[in-house]
Amino acid sequence: MSRRTYLLRKLIFALVTIFVVLVINFVLFRVLPGDPVRAVIGRNVKISAEAQQALRQQFGLDKPIFPDQFLDTLRQWAQGNLGISWSLRRPVAEILMSKLGNTLLLIGLGQLLSIILGVFLGLFAGWKRKTVFDVAALTFSLIAWATPTFWLGIILLAAGSSWLGLPTGGIVSPENVGKPLYTVLPDLARHLVLPTLTLTILYLGEYMLIMRSSILEVLSEDYILTAKAKGMSPWQVLWRHALKNAMLPIVTIVALNLGFTVSGAIYIETVFSYDGLGKLFQTALVKQDYPLLQGAFLLLAVSVIVANFLADILYTALDPRVKAN
């Protein structure tokens, strides 16, 4: 099977999964309690029954859920219309998009740092097995992996703000709010230090552990002995023969994490009052803002599926055997 057929199959699979998610998302928010019309009119009970009925007609809520409402919803989603937030009174898609950039910045930085550090430290720990470095790395990894996100966030927040004078929350200082982000880069960087550090430490432990055990397994393989017998230096063996093989499990884990960190950032964004998706989800949940939650669910599900699809593409580049199966 060629690479193109393989990826095409994976793409179709991803699209089907997204459709299933759409259906579940639709059903889930129809079985939840609450009446959209009542939510819109709020406590204003003076609106007449006729007016309420008119509202229902206007939003198509008088039609049967299936197929009319379902197809109508799909059509709206396809056009990028995810509805209006009950609490913020603005289009959901617009709200999500405005926060997505902030979250991607935080997650992107944190993941990038933890992947690079985790891969290299894990590689080195496995290579120098049973040395002081290995034991230290292993201990750190286990502690980092087991630490609750919010706790680490609070500790770093307290330490960083009192000793290093780093800001306690937000993305930029109040005087810079509203200015384009690229014009206030130093201020932005100072705000990003603590949340990024928290995210990096949390994922670093996991990546180091997986990379370490992966490289240990690979180093015991016969082809590593072949490489040594060829007269390669330990460094060449590691770089040319071990690394690519040992990277395979990391790709899977990173792909899964990338999808889930969009939601995993909820704790960090809350602790650091970081204005991103995580904090938005928390607000939506507290205020029972169903349209916003529905949009958030959709975004989460799609990001997990897209991350997995990207992992599949990466796999074909790393492992020639993938295409065969």
């Binding site: 016969d222 082809y223 002995l225 072949t226 040594k228 007269g231 690519k244």
Partner: peptide, 22 residues
Amino acid sequence: REYRWKEIAIVFQGAMNALNPV
């Protein structure tokens, strides 16, 4: 390292795993 393979090469028992799969 200069002598390995250049002067003395080796063919291993399990050719299954003696070649790098990727």
